[in-house]
Simulated scan of single mutants.
Amino acid sequence: MATTGITPSQDDRSVAELVRQFSEQTSHLIRDEMRLAQAEMSRKAKHAGAGMGLFGGAGLLAFFGVGALVTCAIAALSLELEVWAAALIVAGALFLLAGVVAMLGRGQTKQASPKPERTVENVKRDVGELKERHR
């Protein structure tokens, strides 16, 4: 007679009890994994927030740097022209540059579609195939 190595006390558990125990352990494992993911995402969000704040600070400093360059351009032109004329020329150049950038932005915006066209087409095709199969 071959022995299986299972004692009667180990073999006495019913299938229902084993399924219940499996379900409890799986549920516990999933909850633990969700807590771990939440803690990890919280840490990453803190780092992302700090990074975004630093990027904002860099943008502000760059803005002031551009202002200093504009002032420099006005001061350089004022060596040959009146200060008001130099400021007017620099302001006109800035408005012209702003208009070019706005037109480029408008062109990019027009290319953006409010709906995901390829996805809509794929879904329509999938629905059509499902209808064909059920006929």
Results as ranks from 00 to 15, higher is better:
35 R>Q: 14
35 R>N: 15
36 L>H: 14
36 L>T: 14
37 A>E: 08
38 Q>D: 03
39 A>I: 02
40 E>D: 15
42 S>T: 14
44 K>I: 01
44 K>Q: 04
45 A>G: 02
45 A>M: 07
45 A>F: 08
45 A>I: 03
46 K>F: 01
48 A>R: 14
50 A>V: 07
50 A>Q: 12
51 G>N: 14
51 G>A: 15
51 G>E: 14
52 M>Y: 15
52 M>K: 15
53 G>A: 03
54 L>Y: 09
55 F>E: 15
56 G>R: 11
57 G>H: 11
58 A>Q: 15
61 L>T: 09
63 F>R: 10
64 F>A: 05
65 G>F: 04
67 G>H: 03
67 G>I: 03
69 L>R: 04
73 A>D: 10
74 I>A: 13
75 A>N: 15
75 A>V: 13
77 L>N: 06
78 S>L: 02
78 S>P: 09
78 S>T: 07
79 L>H: 07
79 L>N: 06
79 L>A: 06
80 E>N: 00
82 E>P: 03
83 V>A: 06
84 W>T: 08
84 W>P: 01
87 A>C: 07
87 A>R: 02
90 V>A: 07
90 V>F: 03
90 V>R: 03
91 A>V: 05
91 A>P: 00
91 A>E: 00
93 A>I: 07
93 A>K: 12
95 F>A: 14
95 F>V: 15
96 L>W: 11
103 M>T: 07
105 G>K: 07
106 R>Y: 03
108 Q>M: 10
110 K>W: 13
110 K>H: 12
111 Q>N: 13
111 Q>T: 13
112 A>W: 09
112 A>V: 04
113 S>P: 00
114 P>S: 08
115 K>V: 11
116 P>L: 06
116 P>M: 03
119 T>C: 00
120 V>Q: 09
120 V>C: 01
122 N>Y: 10
122 N>V: 08
123 V>F: 05
123 V>R: 00
124 K>G: 00
124 K>D: 03
125 R>Q: 07
125 R>V: 06
126 D>H: 05
126 D>P: 00
128 G>R: 09
130 L>A: 12
131 K>I: 06
132 E>K: 10
132 E>Y: 06
134 H>K: 04
135 R>Y: 07
135 R>V: 11
135 R>S: 14
